[in-house]
Simulated scan of single mutants.
Amino acid sequence: MASVKADLTGVESIPVKKEEETGVLIPSLQGKKYKLQLTPNGLDRCSDTGIAFQVKRSTTVEYEVEYGSQYMKLVEEKKCELVGPLFNLKFDDNSVLCVHLPHYVNIKGENNSKIECGYFKDGKVNTKTPFKIESSSIVLKNPTPCCVGALWGSSFWRKNPVPFSAKVLLYASVLMPHKQESKEYKVHLYLIPAEKPELKKLDTLKAQSGFKLIDKPSDISRDVYENTDYTVTVEDPKAIIFPSVLNFKPNRDISQSSFVEITVAGSAEKICLSLKDKRKQLWKGELTKGDLKDLIDEMTSPAEEFPPGQDCNHHTTTIAGQPLSKETQK
């Protein structure tokens, strides 16, 4: 079905702020519901989800990131593809001048014209052309409260696979750090959309099982495609990689995203990783000797006293205020 042009009649003369003028706010969170209290001072972006609002007057906006199968079914029936997070928006009518919705598409050439906005309401989805398409978001002017998200238009979804922008996340842990003969490193590698929301949720989940986020360059050098297999390799021939192939699925809840686990002997001085498609390398990263030493230092506490009979290799510690426990499965 052809897209409907956005209706801009009656738009107020308040200028839409440019992306570089955006302020970042930390939302309150209750269950799945985010909340921001906004004033009409410019464009404010949520630090957890990437959505941004410019309001006409002081107001409160509420929103949830949706992953329900009922939405995906509507997208499939529309013969579109979801290319960004779905947000269920709640705010007073006529209080929001514009909303910037994150999208996952690698914008280049004319392919931005293929991005539409899907409006989900009353069991139906309608599409409209956004007021503006930016490198990482689409702009809607004078939005109404409903569930919205970026879609790859029905005219293009079969002919042109969506070129996604993606990045790699690395989480690492060390098992049996006090026993050299048993010590081993575990690295979890994720491939996710570059603008994926709710990364703090993943950080918390990994921390609870004893894994620390490793800060490394994460951007992928080439386009990534949905339902495509990507291979993880390690220079160490004795490393265990399971599974060796990672399938890119951009629209999963971040807490349910697939990952590859790499297990390396504790005698390793560095861990060199790469991600490849069928043709060439997309990403390369390295945990250096210093990275591994820092990991051990953070996962152990020499001054910690253990109750009688408790092995010092089985303990909890704290990183950034989060109680951690080692992940022993796998």
Score class of each variant (00 low, 15 high):
151 L>V: 06
254 I>Y: 09
174 V>K: 05
192 I>K: 11
148 V>W: 02
151 L>N: 02
189 L>D: 00
29 L>Y: 01
239 A>S: 15
315 H>Y: 10
122 D>R: 15
96 V>K: 03
226 E>W: 03
70 Q>A: 05
274 S>P: 00
34 Y>W: 00
128 K>P: 00
145 P>C: 09
287 L>C: 02
289 K>R: 13
196 K>T: 13
203 D>P: 10
99 V>Q: 00
87 F>M: 03
266 G>E: 06
250 P>M: 03
47 S>H: 08
231 T>E: 11
265 A>H: 15
227 N>D: 15
228 T>I: 05
315 H>A: 06
168 V>G: 00
203 D>M: 10
292 L>S: 11
309 G>P: 04
272 C>Q: 14
257 S>A: 15
157 W>G: 00
134 E>I: 04
142 N>A: 07
10 G>Y: 12
247 N>I: 12
59 T>Q: 02
260 V>N: 03
318 T>R: 07
297 D>I: 03
249 K>N: 12
60 T>W: 02
17 K>F: 11
128 K>M: 11
67 Y>H: 13
69 S>L: 06
257 S>Y: 04
197 P>I: 11
2 A>Q: 08
158 R>W: 06
112 N>T: 09
114 K>P: 00
202 L>R: 08
188 H>N: 14
168 V>N: 01
182 S>M: 12
227 N>K: 09
59 T>P: 06
3 S>C: 09
81 E>G: 01
185 Y>A: 09
121 K>G: 11
251 N>G: 01
223 D>S: 14
176 M>Y: 09
235 E>A: 13
153 G>A: 01
270 K>Y: 14
167 K>F: 14
94 N>W: 00
196 K>F: 09
271 I>W: 02
67 Y>L: 04
27 P>V: 04
158 R>V: 06
49 T>M: 06
127 T>H: 03
221 S>Q: 07
221 S>M: 06
75 V>H: 03
139 V>C: 02
212 K>C: 03
155 S>F: 08
259 F>T: 13
14 I>C: 04
22 T>D: 03
178 H>Q: 10
62 E>T: 04
189 L>K: 03
28 S>F: 00
48 D>I: 02
141 K>T: 13
325 S>C: 10
130 P>E: 02
46 C>M: 08
327 E>L: 08
32 K>G: 04
166 A>N: 00
11 V>D: 07
231 T>Q: 12
27 P>C: 10
28 S>W: 01
207 A>M: 14
83 V>L: 13
37 Q>T: 02
26 I>H: 06
11 V>K: 10
222 R>C: 11
239 A>Q: 15
327 E>A: 09
127 T>D: 05
312 C>I: 12
106 N>K: 12
35 K>I: 02
64 E>R: 11
124 K>R: 15
317 T>V: 07
328 T>S: 09
40 P>H: 01
66 E>H: 04
206 K>L: 09
64 E>P: 01
31 G>H: 06
196 K>Y: 04
76 E>T: 10
